[in-house]
Design a protein around this nucleic acid. Structure first.
Length: 446
RNA sequence: GCGCCCUUCGUCUAUCGGUUAGGACCCCAGAUUUUCAAUCUGGUAAGAGGGGUUCGACUCCCCUAGGGCGUACCA
């Protein structure tokens, strides 16, 4: 059986690290198994769904490298849901209920205060035809609940092992709202059947849902797919991630300059036994992926880890990969430049600083006590500068001034770059060129 | 309140009854770079607490504490 999974985001906002992780795990699992990945736009809520957000989802997935084999929009599939609805009604599994939300809230509070579980009491099931007619005559419109069998639903979960949910302890789920809108549950099950989804991979916040949904699969005459419920993410402080998801959208990370490979490597490995390191590429991450590697407790999303992985991605990036992007920002100063600069940047855009040191205007940093060394060095600078010049030159300065080690190199670095850290000076010096070097050593901004 | 899941170095984790409790990050030290960064090598450091079961428990069971999730006409 070929694996076929789906990722079903709602186009009601931008993708963030929490929901993209679920999508990514689906993608990695599918690709690792040579299976298919379906993108299913959950736009049944016509009010909140927008075309722009839908486009944003595609932009983000494409940028991350998460290609899809099929794309469907649930808004185009209402006939299917209506058909399923009719079938459930005819089997007596879907019944109308007329309580208002206020009434339901009140009942829940009463049950809770009595120490009882807040489960719907199925009062609507006992309504006579006459009572229903009276309610409708009042202008009340029903919402529709799925009648649970009330049994222990069992499945073997790829991520959590044997699972059981007692549907007798849950409320009959509302499938259709008073205004006629389909809630998430029914379209999800109907589409999983229709699209022949083999594995439903989602967060463990859906575990209880799964019990009810398996009953719906069965009520529709289908066999439930396999399930994998992965742990959720918490923030670095152990708090739930939801509180600051706003700052963690994929779009924001892209705009801040994070590498897609870093984001994907980080999300793929949080909460697994693999080290938090970059993969070679997203396909490699898929090859390494296994549910068995995932821990059973919430994974920590630490922004510092992302930053570190991002730097590591850059530190290993070959010139061929970086070249077009360097050219894009006017910083393509050759392979030697990139290879020495890449280990000094945390974000790709950081290259700009070093390009500026080479071709821009820099104010030298010359401390009073370093002045003798810098002045002596200025007089000893070779006429032509190449890869060997730095070594030759600093030897001459050492001989002339007696300065050595840190006392020799830091004054020159500071004077030439205006900074106290950076790439190999042997590479930087010829790029900076004799003219600028001379002026900077003289204390001029050049 | 009730239900499900979870709890190992500072952090992320391995172990699935007998191990010097392993790896990664951080940190520290050394090497290299006649400087910083980067890189390489080495090192410090752990089984929430309490009861059981067992010749033997991080591993199995129970209790307590702590955490996550669920208990919606959200997804």
């Amino acid at each position: 059986m070929t694996v076929k999974v789906r990722f079903a985001p709602s186009p009601t906002g931008r993708l963030h690290v929490g929901n993209i992780r679920t999508g990514l795990i689906n993608w990695l699992f599918a690709r690792g198994e040579g299976g298919q990945f379906v993108l299913r736009i959950d736009d049944t809520d016509r009010e909140r769904s927008t075309r722009e957000y839908e486009q944003g989802i595609e932009t983000d997935l494409t940028w991350l490298g998460m290609t899809w084999d099929e794309k469907h929009s649930q808004s185009a599939r209402f006939p299917l849901y209506r058909d399923a609805m009719e079938r459930l009604k005819s089997h007596g599994r879907l019944y109308p209920a007329y309580e208002t939300q206020d009434e339901l809230d009140r009942r829940r509070k009463v049950q809770l205060s009595r120490g009882q579980p807040p489960v719907y009491d199925r009062a609507a099931l006992k309504l006579t035809d006459a009572e229903r007619a009276a309610l409708e005559a009042e202008g009340r419109r029903p919402h529709w609940r799925f009648r649970l069998e009330g049994k222990r639903v069992k499945w073997e979960d790829l991520a959590r092992g044997h699972c059981e949910v007692d549907t007798a302890s849950m409320s009959d789920p509302v499938l259709i709202r008073e205004d006629g809108a389909f809630l998430y549950t029914l379209p999800s099950v109907v589409d999983d059947i229709d699209m022949a989804i083999t594995h439903v991979v989602r967060g463990e916040d859906h575990v209880t849902n799964t019990g009810a949904q398996i009953e719906i699969f069965e009520a529709l005459g289908a066999r439930a797919p396999q399930f994998a419920h992965t742990t959720l993410l918490v923030g670095a402080d152990g708090e739930g991630l939801s509180k600051r998801l706003g700052s963690l959208s994929i779009m924001d990370l892209r705009e801040q300059g994070y590498e897609p490979l870093a984001i994907v490597s980080h999300l793929a490995r949080i909460g697994t036994s693999d080290p938090l390191e970059p993969g070679d590429n997203i396909a490699g991450l898929a090859a390494d992926f296994a549910f068995g590697k995932m821990a059973r407790h919430p994974g920590r999303y630490d922004f510092d880890d992302l930053a570190r992985i991002n730097a590591a991605v850059l530190h290993a990036m070959p010139y061929e990969t970086a070249q077009p992007r360097l050219a894009n920002i006017g910083a393509d100063l050759g392979e030697a430049f990139w290879l020495s600069v890449r280990s000094n940047v945390a974000l790709f855009s950081g290259v700009g600083v070093w390009a500026h040191v080479v071709s821009g205007s820099v104010e030298p940093l010359i401390a009073e006590e370093d002045r003798p060394v810098v002045e002596a060095a200025a007089g000893l600078l070779p006429e032509t500068l190449d890869g060997d010049s730095w070594s030759v030159w600093t030897s001459l300065v050492k001989a002339a001034t007696g300065a050595k080690g840190r006392g020799l190199f830091m004054p020159l670095r500071r004077a030439l770059t205006g900074l106290d850290h950076g790439p190999e000076m042997a590479v930087m010096l010829p790029l900076i060129g004799r003219e600028k070097a001379v002026r900077r050593l003289a204390g001029e901004t050049a």
